[in-house]
Design a protein around this nucleic acid. Sequence first.
DNA 1: CGCATTATGGCAAACGATTGCCAAACGTAA
DNA 2: TTACGTTTGGCAATCGTTTGCCATAATGCG
Lengths: 347, 347
Amino acid sequence: MKKPTPPVSGAAPNMKQVAEAAGVAVSTVSRALTNPGRVNEKTRTRVAEAARKLGYTPNAAARSLRMGKSKTIMIVLPGALYYGASQIIPLALAGIDGLLARNGFKILIANLDREEATEQHIINLAGSGTVDGAIVLSSAPPSVGGRSLKDLGLPVVAMLHDISDQGVPSVITNEHQIMCAATELLIAEGHRQFLYVAGPDGVYHEVHRYAGIREAIARHGLPESALTRTEGVGAYQEGFNIGFAAAEQLLAMAPRPTAALCCSDDAALALLKRLLDEGIEVPSEVAVMGFDGAAVGALFRPALSTIEQPATEMGTRAAALLLEMLAGEEVPPVTVVDSTILRRGSA
Amino acid sequence: MKKPTPPVSGAAPNMKQVAEAAGVAVSTVSRALTNPGRVNEKTRTRVAEAARKLGYTPNAAARSLRMGKSKTIMIVLPGALYYGASQIIPLALAGIDGLLARNGFKILIANLDREEATEQHIINLAGSGTVDGAIVLSSAPPSVGGRSLKDLGLPVVAMLHDISDQGVPSVITNEHQIMCAATELLIAEGHRQFLYVAGPDGVYHEVHRYAGIREAIARHGLPESALTRTEGVGAYQEGFNIGFAAAEQLLAMAPRPTAALCCSDDAALALLKRLLDEGIEVPSEVAVMGFDGAAVGALFRPALSTIEQPATEMGTRAAALLLEMLAGEEVPPVTVVDSTILRRGSA
DNA sequence: CGCATTATGGCAAACGATTGCCAAACGTAA
DNA sequence: TTACGTTTGGCAATCGTTTGCCATAATGCG
């Protein structure tokens, strides 16, 4: 019984060992494994067999070094969006991962929390050749001391935010238009007094969603007073608080709005709860419309009507764009994936 | 005016260019940057200045190759747990990332979906020196053809599941005990007939949670008939369906259970909704207790009582264990982080 | 059979950072 | 001034893979 080199030894076997086992040179092993046409079929199987027996896996660092690519993509996540009921980020990740993993890419996660040195950390990752590209889910590509992720020579794609004005191809949803459509729907059903439950001031989404509502209002000849916007109450991660604060504001208003359009499902659900607690009928007295499409909204009574973002598909599209950029192809500056209005009962 | 090498050139600057700029040898640059004591202070600043000016970032692949470590940790996620209302996975990730990033580690995500070749992919990552260790959130460490992640010579830590019997240090919560405590609480309040809304058959959590309830039942001398267990209805990701199916079962039972303990908040919320739709009072007619601690549960009416898992802390602890293992220290086979009962109204 | 052509495998030089070892330079003391 | 010790910087090997180039073997054709 021959003594096989144990597959589980301390050190991982390298190409040289495979070469010896197969009785060929390392270069032949390399070619046999990656460039099948270049080597005789019999040799190739012999090499493959030796590699299998030894449990050989090519060393990624060495390959990266030699090739100048890492087959790794960095996903830049804003810690702030990560909690609450909506599953935008996890779904987007699933979409991204699906396509990238299929194409042999690894996924590096950066910036789950927003710590001090994190931006520097991200820039370093990009500059060190650790990653071949990045998908940014935060509103601005990280930068430090004038050096920004986007001009580091790496392909970068944004999603959720449109930062094509900074030269970064972006995958977004039709926030403006869908919000406009939702408002028009409500107007058609007789609503005349609206409350927009706003998220953090100055955030990308806010501008577009609010503008969408205003457009609908204007288009139907309603006065400006038909729309009130809540004061920003802090970060998205405080989604519930946004909703609670909005409820206070709504309850104090006269005339009272009959429809509330919210920046997130978190805000909408909190608002919904508070209104119901106050004995207000939804949707007959006040209609509530969320934004995101959180599945759990369907369990509320009444079930939350909302605007469903195609998070998974946006992720897939962003990944596809990045792959094209890596292949040297031109990509459109903006890709729009449509959201849909999901009427479930609260509006 | 001298012509500075533009920081944003096509190729990233390497150590040799820094050395030239500073008028020293590469080895000196290396030592100046990583081993400050070994080189004259004046030289050190000169090198640091040159590096800064060129925008130098050490090449990670080269360093990995030379050092034999990648400063990268792989997180193995089960795609199945990723959706629904509970935020266990995102919170766990935040905990893990917090500690690892602070220690200079990168985080590689694997297996968001469960595709065909994924397990092989994971094994390859581990074998290729791409990662220095792994944290596993799925029930079993991936394996293919007899080669398992856990015996690949890499430090591996599990969380959420106890697989210490396979030699993998595990971070878990006291599912058995807390479920027992919750049941005792309900017994003390007069409940005598229980329904356990079960998740997928044979899953780790199921065994322990169910056993916890049984222990409480037995300890208080209640008959076995005091506890009914729903039939498994499929994967966790079908959380809502589990709850709906359980509702049907509960409604058909006589005598009707007065308390339902659920395997997840998703199931609990779906059950809650269905019961309320049927006009059943919660908690007076049927008390409902969830499991996970999803924040959104607080918005239901009544607010969902639940068992809150310390997901973030479990993540932090798992990361800490892994760091200790990387440092060659011994770690305990099992680490328990306590869950807490969160009484909010539905039980 | 001889020559030209192609298929195949091997040698060795990269890729960029780290580090053992040695040499130069410096300071100090005799 | 010489001898010695100490500090500091440089040379060069190394990590494991890929690949241009060359040598050889195999094949085809006249």
